[in-house]
Design a protein around this nucleic acid. Sequence first.
DNA 1: ATAATAGTGTCTCTTAGACAATATTTC
DNA 2: GAAATATTGTCTAAGAGACACTATTAT
Lengths: 242, 242
Amino acid sequence: MAHSRGSDRSHDPTAYPPFAVSADLVVLTVRDDELCALVVRRGEEPYAGRLALPGGFVREGEDLREAAVRELAEETGLTPGDVHLEQLATYGAPGRDPRMRVVTVAHLALAPDLPTPAAGSDAAEAEWRPVDELLVDGLAFDHATLLRDGVERARGKLEYTPLGAAFCRPEFTVAELRRVYEIVWGTRLDPRNFHRKVTRTEGFLEPAGSTTTRDGGRPAQLFRRGRVELLYPPILRRAPQS
Amino acid sequence: MAHSRGSDRSHDPTAYPPFAVSADLVVLTVRDDELCALVVRRGEEPYAGRLALPGGFVREGEDLREAAVRELAEETGLTPGDVHLEQLATYGAPGRDPRMRVVTVAHLALAPDLPTPAAGSDAAEAEWRPVDELLVDGLAFDHATLLRDGVERARGKLEYTPLGAAFCRPEFTVAELRRVYEIVWGTRLDPRNFHRKVTRTEGFLEPAGSTTTRDGGRPAQLFRRGRVELLYPPILRRAPQS
DNA sequence: ATAATAGTGTCTCTTAGACAATATTTC
DNA sequence: GAAATATTGTCTAAGAGACACTATTAT
């Protein structure tokens, strides 16, 4: 935003270099016991043939989140009702796009594992790939950085918010939620202590009232995500080194 | 960032509406027992005469953080060596600047209480104002939102990082650090428990070796900020309701 | 019955919070 | 000495982690 000083033209926005602004998406899910991200294969230069995060330019009259929501729907058919969506960070190093100056506002989406979009649909070209693989293979542009930052954000969010549930179906078991934590954090968690912890953390889970045996063994209670935004106490990572 | 699909011009950045991109600053400090933010008075329309956060347009060839660092230096004389600086969030609602489409990348800076910049210096027009006052009075543009988000971010950071120390001089006492927590969080903390907590949290504080009586009473040890980025365990807010 | 998973209980250790008590300054 | 602040100690309660044990399903 322009500030106040001076009467020079340095605060006239029309006198400043034009940028293109895009909204890119780091869409994460847990799938086949791996943390996966949604990517599309680029058809055009630059980086033709390479994988990239989905995204597109922000339109006139469109807010940043709106653009992210639109891109998400276009690429995946998902809506904000299905996933958690938040702004991640903004990347604007000169030269990150060789064509012109592009600033991208990255957004982070956490989605349950959904059936792969039907071929022929708008979202046909998007595919899930394991994050680990994407981070070694070359993603286009600076998308590896966006992805890395998104994963790091997601890891932290699991500690302080109930967003682990955003990776699960609307009704899920404690074991399913635990697998999310284990895969996103890359650690093992004791099922018994985890169960006690999440069921006793106020507002995290709400009993759905029914049970399921889809995980085998004794029927498990189903839960929905609770109402709170922040967990107290949090579910902390990192075992005390002792 | 452009994605791959299609051969239409929808992925040609030069075909998209031009934005101006600015870097705005939420610079916070603790001063006279209040949380204060740095503001400048606008000389020009729009919002002439109103207070606004410092900031300015990102230049060609300049990265976003670079622009924030430059603005910080211009407005306050502060450098990244003196303060903590991080990206906060990006705001780009259409119409937030009536002149044209402007997307601003807000940055959060946490600074120790410094002498007010000398009149006549570059930074002469910047002044500290209590956050509470700024949030009721009308800040220009959507700056109240930026400020609110910045304060909320700072509150959270005190829990999980040693950044409370960024509000203190290079060498500070435990009591000075505690005042930072009390003022930023708006709560009272038990001096004895706080002392034990911060001095025993691995890597938070590093003894400077000397003492001071500047706070009165028995001489207090001086500390410097430790090396860790994340506190374990964190210093949690919100008393268990019980 | 066996295997599998769900869920509870118990024990120990760490930490948080309340608060007494002691230490070292200035006035 | 009185006042002020620093720092340590003690007690209690809550929570984390290890892990025994019980519960309920499928085969």
